[in-house]
Amino acid sequence: MSESPVLSPPVLTQRDGTVLTVTLNLPDRRNPISDPAMVDALCDVFEAADRDASIHVAILTGAGSAFSSGGDLNAMRPDAGGLRASLPAQTRRNYRAGIQRLPLLFQAIELPVIAAVNGPAIGAGLDLACMCDLRIAGQSARFAESFVKLGLVSGDGGAWLLPRIIGFSKASQLSLTGETIDAGEALRIGLVGDVVPDAELMTVARAQADAIAANPPHATRMTKRLLRAAQTAELSQILEMAGAMQALAHATADHDEAITAFFDRRPPHFKGD
Rank of each mutant, 00 (worst) to 15 (best):
V6K: 12
P9L: 12
V11E: 01
Q14I: 07
Q14R: 13
Q14M: 08
R15M: 11
N25I: 09
I33F: 10
P36N: 03
A41C: 10
F46S: 00
A49L: 09
D50G: 10
L60G: 04
G71L: 03
A75R: 15
G81E: 07
L83R: 03
A85C: 10
P88F: 04
A89F: 12
T91H: 11
N94V: 04
Y95S: 02
Y95W: 05
Y95P: 01
Y95A: 09
Y95D: 00
R96M: 02
G98H: 14
I99R: 01
L102A: 14
V117K: 09
I122V: 15
L126N: 03
R135K: 13
I136A: 04
G138S: 10
A141Q: 13
E145C: 07
V148N: 14
V153W: 06
D156E: 15
G157K: 03
W160A: 11
L161Y: 05
L161A: 11
S172Q: 14
A186N: 12
I189P: 06
V192E: 02
G193Y: 00
D194P: 02
E200Y: 09
L201Q: 10
T203F: 08
Q208I: 09
R221W: 02
T223R: 01
K224M: 11
R225S: 14
Q231I: 01
G243Y: 08
Q246V: 05
D256R: 04
I259Y: 00
F263I: 06
D264I: 07
P268T: 10
G272P: 01
